[in-house]
Amino acid sequence: MNIEELLLHIEKRPQMYFREKNVYFLETFLGGFFVNEYLKNKDFKNDFRSGFYYWLKNKFNLEENTTWADYIDIISQKEELNSFDVFFREYYIYKNESK
């Protein structure tokens, strides 16, 4: 399963994977997924997180922060929306703009 397929499954049924819809649970889960993929294939390059981090930073004019999940959390608090939902909204925009 690739990251695109995994994210589709998670988005459809988040409570199957996490206690609650929260970007930090998603961040941790994806970290494990990417470590596993890298261990299986040292040439693995389908890790969107670094590009997504800088894209969020520039789009929302945010100061340096620790992770992309921190940016999503900041955005979701400002918009008073669930961080998990904000992640998927922004991820799809990022993905479309990165084509």
Results as ranks from 00 to 15, higher is better:
I72E: 07
E11W: 15
F25R: 15
Y92W: 03
N82H: 03
F34I: 07
K99P: 00
K95F: 06
Y71S: 14
K78S: 01
F84S: 11
K78R: 13
N22L: 03
F52G: 13
L8R: 12
E4V: 07
E63K: 09
F87E: 04
Y54I: 05
D43R: 14
S98M: 12
I93L: 12
G31C: 02
Y53G: 06
Y24D: 03
K99G: 01
N36P: 01
E79P: 00
W55K: 06
N41Q: 10
K78C: 05
I72P: 05
N96I: 07
L8P: 00
F25A: 08
E63T: 04
E64N: 15
D73R: 04
N65F: 02
E64V: 15
G51L: 10
I72Y: 09
S76R: 09
I72F: 02
Y38E: 13
E37M: 15
N82S: 01
G32M: 00
E90R: 10
T67E: 07
L7D: 08
W55G: 06
Q77H: 06
N65V: 06
Q15W: 01
I3Y: 12
T28R: 14
I75N: 12
Y17E: 02
E79F: 08
N36V: 11
F44D: 11
E97Y: 05
G31P: 01
D70S: 01
N82I: 00
L8G: 10
Y53S: 09
K21S: 08
K78E: 01
L30D: 11
E5A: 09
N36C: 12
K40A: 08
R49M: 09
F18Q: 04
I3E: 10
N46E: 11
R13G: 11
V23K: 02
I10M: 14
T28M: 04
R49P: 05
F44C: 06
N22P: 05
D70W: 00
N61Y: 08
N82K: 01
F18R: 03
N61S: 14
I74A: 04
E4I: 15
N22D: 15
E11Q: 15
I74G: 03
M16D: 05
K40T: 00
T66E: 08
W68H: 08
Y53K: 04
I75Y: 09
S50R: 07
F33W: 15
D70F: 03
W55C: 04
R89N: 11
M16N: 14
F29A: 09
N41M: 13
I10E: 12
R49G: 09
E37D: 07
R49C: 06
E5H: 01
E20C: 03
K57N: 11
I10V: 15
I10S: 15
I10W: 13
N2M: 03
K95S: 08
T28I: 10
Y38L: 04
K21G: 06
M16K: 14
Y38K: 12
A69L: 09
K40P: 01
G32T: 00
E11G: 09
I93D: 06
W68E: 14
